[in-house]
Design a protein around this nucleic acid. Structure first.
Length: 343
DNA sequence: AACTAGGACAACCGCATGGGC
DNA sequence: GGCCCATGCGGTTGTCCTAGT
C-alpha cells in the first residue's frame, strides 16, 4: 500500500502566501494552537495543505523568529556548528535562538559557503583546499611580485598564501620544477585533508568555546557566556551523535582551523612579532621546497591587527568580509626586509 | 528604458522517523 | 510486529529583486 499524500492535491493552493492567508493562520493558531496540522487548514478556512501551513508558521510567522541579517557572532556559530554537525540544519537551528533551519540553510548556501570557497576552504570538510584557488592564474599574472601576493592575502587562507609564496619563490628559481610540483597538487590536497588538526574530544568543548568566545570578545569587548548555547551535557550528546553518524568511534574529531589558531590572532602588544617570525622562519624553511614540511608545520600565526571593530546585529556583508579579511592579515613589522623574507 | 544574469530567500517535495493502534 | 499517520528534516525549485549591460 502506497503512502497517502499529505493533503488532497485538488483545490489546494500553492505558491507564496498572501497577507490574508497569513492573518488567518496567525489568528487561528493564536486562538486554538496548531493542534493537528492536517485538519488545521480546513478549520482555519485556508486552501492550503497542512504541511504548507506548518512550514509557513514555523519558518515565517512564529512570533519568536528573529528576522534580518545574521550577526557576525551568529555566522561564526553557524560555521563552528556546521563543522561539528554537518548539514544537520535543525540541530544547528536549535542552538541559534530565533533562527530556523530553513533560514540557516539558505544563509549557508548563499553567503557562508561562497565566502569559505573564496578563502580557499572546503565548505564541506572545512579544510584548506588548494584546488579551490586558481594558482595558475596567480602565478601567471602580469605583476608577479610580492606586493601582488600580499594583496591576495585578504582573500585566501594564510596557509595557502604561504604555499603560494613558496611556489612563487620556487618559480623564480626554477620554473620547470614549479610545473612539476603543481602536478602534485592533487596529491597535496590529499595530504591536506589528512593533516587537519586533531583534538581530543575531552577538550573539544573547551576548544570550541574558546574560539567562539574569543570572537565574541574581539567583537564586543566583553566576555560572554557560552555563545554557542552548547551546554556540556548537550555537547556530549551532540558529539556522541555526530561521532556515531560519521562512523567515528569517539576517539578523535576534526576541528576546523581555517589556517589559523584563534588564540594566536590576538596580539595586544604591537611589538610582539613572534607570530610573524614563525611565518618568516617557515618561509625560510620552505626554500628547500619540501611540501611535507610546508604542510605539516604548525599553521602560521597571523596576528590580529590592533583595531578592535565592534559588531552589532545587522552588520553589513562588507563589514563581515572586512573583518574576516582582517583576521587573516599578518602584522608586518616595520623595517622588514622583504628580500630577506622571500629568500 | 529594456533586457539579462545572478543573488536571495520563501516554499515545495520526498523521504525518514516515531508514536499510536 | 506491522501498518498508518503526523511530523520533522534536508535537498531542490520557483519567484522576486537588483545590479549590470
Amino acid at each position: 500500500m502506497g503512502r497517502s499524500p499529505c493533503c488532497d492535491k485538488v483545490g489546494v493552493k500553492k505558491g507564496p502566501w498572501t497577507p490574508e492567508e497569513d492573518n488567518k493562520l496567525i489568528q487561528y493558531i493564536q486562538m486554538n494552537g496548531p493542534g493537528n496540522w492536517r485538519t488545521l487548514p480546513k478549520n482555519a478556512g485556508l486552501q492550503r495543505c497542512g504541511k504548507s501551513c506548518r512550514l509557513r508558521w514555523t519558518n515565517y510567522l512564529r512570533p519568536d523568529i528573529k528576522r534580518g541579517r545574521f550577526s557576525f557572532e551568529e555566522e561564526e556559530t553557524v560555521i563552528q556548528l556546521h563543522s561539528i554537525l554537518g548539514n544537520k540544519w535543525s540541530a544547528i537551528a536549535a542552538r541559534l535562538p530565533g533562527r530556523t533551519d530553513n533560514e540557516i540553510k539558505n544563509y549557508w548556501n548563499t553567503h557562508i559557503r561562497k565566502r569559505l570557497l573564496r578563502m580557499g576552504i572546503d565548505p564541506v570538510t572545512h579544510s584548506p583546499r588548494l584546488d579551490l584557488l586558481d594558482l595558475s592564474s596567480i602565478l601567471s599574472s602580469a605583476q608577479l611580485n610580492l606586493s601582488n601576493l600580499l594583496g591576495l592575502q585578504a582573500l585566501v587562507n594564510p596557509e595557502l598564501l604561504r604555499l603560494a609564496s613558496t611556489l612563487l619563490a620556487a618559480h623564480q628559481e626554477n620554473p620547470e620544477m614549479l610545473l612539476q610540483k603543481l602536478q602534485e597538487n592533487q596529491l597535496l590536497n590529499t595530504q591536506i585533508q589528512n593533516q587537519t588538526p586533531m583534538i581530543n574530544p575531552n577538550n573539544f568543548q573547551t576548544a570550541l568555546f574558546d574560539q567562539t568566545n574569543l570572537i565574541q570578545e574581539m567583537g564586543t569587548g566583553q566576555v560572554l557566556t557560552d555563545p554557542t548555547g552548547l551546554s556540556c551535557q548537550n555537547f556530549q550528546e551532540t558529539f556522541q551523535e555526530n561521532a556515531s553518524c560519521s562512523g567515528l568511534n569517539g576517539s578523535f574529531v576534526n576541528l576546523p582551523n581555517y589556517g589559523c589558531n584563534m588564540s594566536d590572532q590576538i596580539t595586544t602588544d604591537p611589538s610582539d612579532n613572534s607570530a610573524f617570525q614563525s611565518m618568516n622562519n617557515s618561509s625560510k624553511n620552505s626554500q628547500n621546497f619540501n611540501f611535507d614540511s610546508v604542510m605539516s608545520t604548525p599553521m602560521s600565526s597571523p596576528t590580529r591587527l590592533n583595531s578592535s571593530p565592534t559588531f552589532i546585529n545587522g552588520s553589513t556583508e562588507d563589514e563581515k568580509e572586512s573583518y574576516c579579511s582582517d583576521m587573516l592579515k599578518f602584522q608586518i613589522p616595520e623595517g622588514l626586509d622583504f628580500d630577506n623574507f622571500m629568500m
